[in-house]
Design a protein around this nucleic acid. Structure first.
Ligand SMILES: Nc1ncnc2c1ncn2[C@@H]1O[C@H](COP(=O)(O)OP(=O)(O)OP(=O)(O)O)[C@@H](O)[C@H]1O
Length: 784
DNA sequence: ACCGTGGACGTTTTT
DNA sequence: CGTCCACGGT
């Protein structure tokens, strides 16, 4: 392909960024400004100018993004060349590197990758062995701290250099933390395992310790590109810096306004220090948004302007104004889901838009349940990304544990998981004995199992035999795994380990589905086999390689071969980098979004706001924001307040829809008895759902459930005067005389806030001054 | 050693 | 509400 043709699809700044191939380069790109396109074309451009793809390293946020970029590049330069690019996530690229050179650090090339579950279990085990209180040394908390430390390259040996770390531990009542950390690191090492953070940490260790290795990769990766640079952590930053140090052909692309992974160590400062690290770097700013309508872009701008910490950017678009953003108030999560499903069907039917045009983006995975239920009921095909993935199911993990053991029997977590599943008479007591023996002889659990017969005195000869038999079986699997294909090994293991038999025994519905899940895993191994043989040059169909691949799948990597015509459901985090014509963001409520955990500091709140910004800017044509009146959480329903973020969007770009009660006749306002607080639930819902008729946009909601703060005394405190005739209003002005169903008559003193959070201070004749959210208050303006 | 049940706890987000 | 773990009975 002619290089010039490539450039025609770019604007001036994009073009400059693509052709500026040498030296450090930073692209600060607004949402939807085509940074992915620049990155893609830049790589194609390099290749068209005879840069060897083997010398190009491109780090993306998901494997899927890498795959898509590769496909696009393949269209330009041909698939056989594009295949040779080093392109993938930090984790998958550097795991690959560690497979080759990790032996220098004492790791086997087939090291296991521990997932969060494995890590937490190991920590729990260590805490137990050390007789520490598991309620204080919570595995989640401990792992989180370890992860933080690793991402900042603070290994246990360095811990002593930072007295403030000990101070923190003392204050947090976990004085033993450092020892737990050390033990964790040691146990992982002995198990031949790395956790997610180790992949980056050990890469740093490798590059930092062995100059010849560093030189090797510096020479290999002459051109380095990093996508989503705002979400790289310190460990990643140091790797990139080291690799780029020789040629300085480094190009990073990012948007500080889309930094949403601080919780896992991402550091916006990496963007800021780029200029310091490379004083002669070139910086390009992309500010024209090609993705969204004017309304969406301007709404997003008005929101993000509320953040104090940000680089200055003017994102604009030449696109049409488009529709306003719809803000909808729902009764509860079921009705919210129903509203969304109805809108999807409406668009689908009236404009022949297939279901892949829609995305529902939520703050927490738990929100997907209510949505799924309604979508399923309405026969709307959907796909959920992330959440509890297939590979996290118990039965699947059990099967995987056997496979892992076949490849690396030192994998302690896998061993613990299946040594007695299915039951073979090796119970907790035995396991504890084995653990003690391993500790006593300073060896691994596996090594004790392997030589169990030598420990008959400690274990009892019957038990020792059972353990030995188990070890023999695993060794057999290991021998097979070295010679045969992943699929052959997996099938053999499934049949002979006893797993198949155990699953078959359970004929409950649950049990059948579990068997099905393991079958599905086997199918995916078969598919992997076939794919490797057909498409990949290396022909690697080993079990080893299969396990590597799946360990580093990201939530976004789900295969999209099976019927792509589906609505996408995912968290806002996972939606980064994607785009959809129509986007729904449900759960726009205080405590949920922003999350209650993120409301306590400015930095946290600003990250939530950026997350919302990311969500808004995923939409191309139309955006719906919905919030509910009440929501079930932990099985208990609670009242909700609209998210503060809703009022932070300039209301010029939004329209609020609040459905009301459809009633017949003129008796409604005066004649319907007030059931508030009497413990009688009015048949509100049926009314609600059938009331799709024309109502004024600001029609107030009907019944408000009892607020927790309402005491019985208050409930009985009804106004003595009769209610006036007139319509509910959500608007009020100082000086207005108003009527409230519970508090009676009063005078508006002042009004604050806007949109759904508009509040009025009212001096009531009977109960004194109250602050009311106008959205809920059901005030009636009295003409007098 | 195994299996059932009750109570505690948890949801923020992910490689 | 659902999951995980500890405990206790078999
Ligand atoms: N020069 C251009 N002309 C027309 N359309 C473009 C141009 N550049 C990018 N686009 C389109 O704009 C949309 C957004 O591009 P892209 O996904 O690359 O943006 P982005 O900067 O990665 O967005 P974000 O940071 O929000 O994820 C895409 O649909 C892309 O095809």
């Amino acid at each position: 392909m002619n290089p010039e043709k490539l450039l025609n699809e770019l604007n001036e700044v994009q073009r400059q960024a693509v052709v500026h191939t040498e030296g450090p380069l930073m692209i600060i790109a607004g949402a939807g400004s085509g940074k992915t396109r620049v990155l893609t074309y830049r790589i194609a451009w390099l290749m068209l100018h005879n840069i060897d793809p083997f010398n190009i390293l491109a780090l993306t946020f998901t494997n899927k993004a890498a795959r898509e970029m590769k496909e696009r590049i393949a269209q330009v330069v041909g698939a056989s060349e594009a295949k040779n690019l080093w392109m993938g996530t930090f984790h998958s690229i550097f795991a690959r590197l560690l497979r080759v050179d990790g032996h220098l650090l004492g790791y086997p090339s087939n090291f296991t990758i521990y997932d969060t579950d494995d890590s937490e279990k190991l920590i729990a085990q260590i805490v137990k062995e050390r007789n520490l209180d598991k309620d204080i040394y919570k595995p989640k908390k401990i792992l989180n701290r370890i992860s933080n430390l690793k991402n900042n390259l603070i290994i246990p040996q360095y811990y002593d250099r930072f007295p403030e770390l000990f101070e923190y531990d003392e204050a947090a009542k976990i004085p033993e933390f450092k020892n737990v950390y050390s033990a964790y690191v040691e146990r992982c090492f002995k198990a031949g395992a790395m956790d997610f953070d180790d992949i980056l940490l050990k890469t740093n260790e490798l590059l930092g310790t062995f100059p010849e290795i560093l030189a090797k990769y510096q020479d290999r990766f002459r051109y380095i590109l990093v996508d989503e640079y705002q979400d790289t952590n310190h460990s990643q930053y140091i790797i990139v810096k080291a690799l780029a140090n020789k040629f300085e052909n480094i190009c990073v692309v990012g948007d500080d306004a889309q930094s949403i992974y601080a919780f896992r160590g991402a550091n916006i400062r990496n963007i800021l220090s780029f200029q310091k690290d490379y004083p002669d770097c070139k910086i390009f700013k992309l500010e024209q948004n090609y993705r969204s309508t004017q309304n969406i872009v301007k709404a997003a701008n008005s929101l993000i302007a509320k953040n104090r910490d940000q680089l200055k950017k003017e994102v604009w678009t030449a696109n049409e104004p488009g529709e306003k953003i719809t803000i909808y108030k729902a009764l509860d999560e079921a009705e919210e889901a129903q509203y969304i499903a109805e809108r999807i069907m409406e668009w689908h039917l009236s404009r022949q838009m297939d279901f892949s045009n829609f995305a529902i983006l939520y703050r927490t995975n738990a929100q997907s349940r209510a949505l799924e239920e309604v979508l399923r009921r309405k026969n709307i095909p959907y796909r959920i990304f992330g959440g509890t993935s297939f590979y996290q199911r118990k039965e699947v993990k059990d099967m995987l544990a056997y496979l892992r053991l076949a490849v690396n029997p030192n994998d302690e977590e896998a061993l613990r998981r299946v040594i007695n599943y299915p039951a073979r008479g090796i119970g907790q007591t035995t396991l504890d004995k084995l653990t003690i023996l391993a500790d006593r002889y300073n060896t691994t659990l596996w090594s004790i199992c392997e030589n169990a017969l030598l420990y008959s005195r400690d274990l009892g000869s019957a038990i020792a035999q059972k353990v030995s038999d188990f070890a023999t079986m695993i060794k057999g699997f290991g021998v097979m795994a070295k010679k045969e294909s992943a699929w052959d090994v997996a099938e053999h293991i499934f049949k002979t380990s006893g797993l198949l038999r155990a699953l078959k025994e359970d004929s409950t519905e649950e049990g059948i589905s579990r068997l099905g899940n393991v079958q599905e895993l086997l199918n995916s191994i078969k598919a992997f086999n076939d794919k490797q043989l057909e498409l990949e040059a290396d022909n690697d169909i080993s079990l080893d390689y299969f396990l590597q691949e799946i360990a580093l799948l990201t939530s976004a990597d789900q295969d999209d071969k099976t019927d792509p015509n589906r609505v996408s459901l995912m968290t806002l985090h996972l939606a980064k980098g994607l785009e959809f014509p129509v986007v729904f963001i449900p759960g726009m409520e205080e405590e949920l979004f922003p999350s209650a955990m993120m409301m306590n500091s400015r930095a946290d709140l600003e990250e939530e706001r950026r997350l919302f910004y990311v969500g808004i800017t995923r939409a191309k044509k139309k955006l719906y924001l919905t919030f509910t009146h009440m929501r079930t959480r932990y099985g208990r329903t609670a009242d909700c307040e609209p998210s503060r973020f809703l009022e932070e969007i300039d209301d010029e770009y939004t329209e609020l829809i609040v459905p009301g009660i459809r009633t017949t006749g003129p008796t409604f306002l005066g004649g319907v008895p007030n059931l508030d607080g009497l413990g009688i639930s009015r048949p509100y819902k049926s009314n609600f759902i059938s009331s799709k008729q024309t109502l004024p946009p600001n029609f107030p909601p009907g019944i408000r459930p009892l607020q927790p703060s309402e005491t019985p005394a208050q409930k009985l405190n009804s106004p003595s005067e009769p209610p006036p005739q007139g319509e509910f209003t959500t608007d009020a002005h100082p000086g207005d005389r108003v009527y409230h169903q519970k508090f009676g008559y009063g005078k508006v003193l002042s009004v604050e806030g806007t949109g759904v959070n508009k509040k009025a201070s009212v001096a009531f004749d009977q109960v004194g001054e109250k602050k009311l959210l106008l959205q809920y208050a059901k005030l009636i303006k009295v003409t007098s």
